[in-house]
């Protein structure tokens, strides 16, 4: 990630209410210049509202938004010069690809001589040169998405706002576009804030991830940190699957199946066994220190190929060292 960059956007105590329910509750967040920040959370958590507030599209809220230390709350969306890509792309259907981009450039009063060169360069960047004369409905979903991106970055915005830009696309296209998006963002170095509900997308794209739930910001960190050290069970469970053992979060892939009984070994009975491609997910019924537990174990597909893990079968598993209980520590390990 880009380190030691200066703080570009500051969100201070932002709250928004719809009637009696909070859409946003006391949000405080710094965004650094050049970083790719993902706002991640389930639907209805307020992430899109926060993005719209940043864009200037929502006006009634408490708190402040600062850019380079100056309040921008009263500044109109267009004057903020933030580029935005909507989930539905919002491409004007009656304008060709280049006309859509030209529309944005003209609205930002770009000099006439520079418009063509700019269109050319963003089309090249987004790999759309051959489609420049086409209309949105002649393009695939992925191509439309790229046009929306091209239109948003053409006027060289200070901040790029992306509202679930990939969620309307097929899985394959989504993965492909994710890489392109990351590359483009790196190339032009624009500060980017993306809203998504897809944890995989957030982890793979972002420099930092801000996890939101119930109108509140619950954790903000690098993807690795969020994955390895979730601060709450919500974050833990939202980002992948978690076992909660002795109030510690154990990822299913950190539970190891073992053949022989050791001092940190437990036993359990298989209650389900799902084949998931590159790994196998097994649910176990177990008893750890007199407490009944359901343990989820992910086993890479090339491990234990000789075993079948049938339902009802009793197996042994090891927990990681850090969750060894005091009682076990007393035993000789």
């Amino acid at each position: 990630m880009m380190k030691a960059n200066k703080n570009l956007i500051q969100i201070e105590n932002v709250s928004k209410k719809y009637g009696n329910t909070f859409a946003l509750k006391n949000i405080n967040l710094e965004i650094f210049e050049g970083e790719f920040l993902c706002l991640l959370g389930p639907s209805g958590c307020g992430k899109s509202t926060l993005l719209r507030i940043l864009a200037g599209l929502e006006t009634n809220y408490d708190g402040k938004i600062l850019k380079n230390g100056k309040e921008i709350d009263a500044i109109e969306p267009g004057k903020r010069k933030f580029g935005m890509v909507f989930q539905s792309y919002s491409l004007f259907p009656n304008m060709s690809v280049e006309k859509n981009i030209e529309f944005a450039l003209k609205a930002f009063k770009y000099e006439k001589q520079k418009i063509n060169a700019k269109i050319e360069s963003v089309l090249e960047l987004t790999n759309l040169l051959e489609h420049r004369k086409k209309f949105p409905n002649q393009l695939s979903g992925g191509q439309q998405q790229r046009v929306a991106l091209a239109r948003a970055i053409a006027p060289e915005p200070t901040v790029l706002l992306l509202d679930e830009p990939l969620s309307a696309l097929d899985f394959k296209v989504r993965e492909e576009l994710r890489q392109q998006l990351k590359k483009i963002q790196r190339d032009i170095g624009v500060t980017t804030i993306m809203v998504t509900h897809d944890q995989e997308e957030a982890l793979s794209l972002a420099d930092r991830v801000a996890v939101m739930n119930h109108a509140e910001l619950v954790q903000i960190s690098t993807p690795e940190e969020i994955y390895r050290n979730p601060k709450s069970f919500f974050v833990a469970n939202f980002i992948g699957t978690m076992n909660n053992i002795y109030n510690k979060f154990i990822r299913p892939e950190d539970v190891k199946i073992s053949d022989k009984k050791g001092c940190n070994t437990h036993s359990g009975i298989v209650i389900s066994n799902e084949f998931r491609g590159f790994y196998r997910r097994i649910k176990l019924k177990s008893e750890i220190e007199n407490e009944k537990k359901e343990i989820i174990v992910d086993i890479p597909i090339f491990h234990h190929q000789d075993r079948s893990f049938n339902e009802g079968e009793s197996i042994h598993f090891n927990l990681p060292q850090e969750v060894v209980s005091e009682q076990i520590k007393e035993r000789i390990c």
Binding site: R52, G78, K79, M84, S88
Partner: peptide, 14 residues
Amino acid sequence: IDSNFQAAAQTMNA
């Protein structure tokens, strides 16, 4: 017609 057109255009200073 997409109801985000006006919002999109607003962010484009139109």
